[in-house]
Design a protein around this nucleic acid. Structure first.
Lengths: 145, 145
DNA sequence: CTTTCCGGTTCCTGATCGTAACCAGCACCA
DNA sequence: TGGTGCTGGTTACGATCAGGAACCGGAAAG
């Protein structure tokens, strides 16, 4: 039956192969399980950062690891593999020694990149407003205590 | 010192108050911790669905719970509270019996909504391509076995 | 007097993430 | 000849988090 497990990050056996969406539909818009799984992958914390990093050209594994501060090797491997699976990232192995593996955005990945950039822009330009909203909220909370 | 815990969903004591970003910066673009926390919140699985649902007007708690199939009461409460904290969602309590609580997007939330809509559109229109990419990837995996 | 509705909270468990250690292959250096 | 380093990748395991389910208070409805 080959039942494919839930979402990202296979706990054991670092292989990808999700596919069976864990959740049903958001009826309000006809967006179904597949859409959700696509959104889950593309809006994932690390995916966004990786796509962002790859926005300006190809990078090798270790470059990405250094660029995306805080990501673990495991998560980098996993997220890249998932992005590759979804056709967003292209993986190129050059069998030199030491081996060299380059990652770059596909055309599809580039179109996603523009979106994540827009998100990033939005976050940047609305940061003050959001931060003050947070401050207000927290202050009200503390007052109520 | 009031050290605020990591990210979404406080495990115990259903209060919000994160703030201390768990991660450093993605140097490649000068995007810093705050940006990351904003992105984490706004691109969150449930946040997206909630913002999407709220896109066409205010809804009460139970409406949202029914609309967003699969969300738990806990996650709905939590995510709404976080969105409220960030000034993206407005919460209005009407003390009738049974109590009535309405949620609606703020102006800021509406601007986010256009982005999430764009993401949704992207996911919808690229779904075939992504699905076939997945199929190809999995096939290649199975072949290698 | 029990049921129902409503928004919300608490507890518990299983999935997920991150840390750290390990692996293979080859070059370099002594 | 053995040690060390670099590479991309994997594994094991402990901490953490999301999700399910049961519970709460209050009032109306039956």
């Amino acid at each position: 039956m080959d039942v494919r497990v839930s979402d990202t990050t296979h706990p054991q056996k670092l292989s990808v192969k999700p596919g069976a969406a864990p959740l049903d539909c958001a009826q309000d818009s006809g967006a179904c399980a597949v859409i959700r799984s696509i959104l889950a992958r593309t809006t994932d914390k690390w995916s966004i950062l990786i796509v962002k990093s790859l926005g300006r050209g190809s990078h090798r594994f270790s470059e990405l690891r250094r660029a995306i501060d805080g990501i673990s090797q495991r998560m980098l491997t996993l997220t890249l593999r998932n992005l590759e699976r979804d056709g967003l990232v292209l993986r190129t192995v050059t069998p030199t020694t030491p081996p060299r593996v380059d990652y770059e955005l596909t055309t599809l990945g580039e179109s996603l990149w523009t979106l994540t950039e827009a998100f990033g822009q939005w976050a940047m330009s609305n940061r003050p407003e959001i931060e003050s909203a947070r401050a207000r909220f927290d202050a009200r909370l503390d007052a109520d205590l």
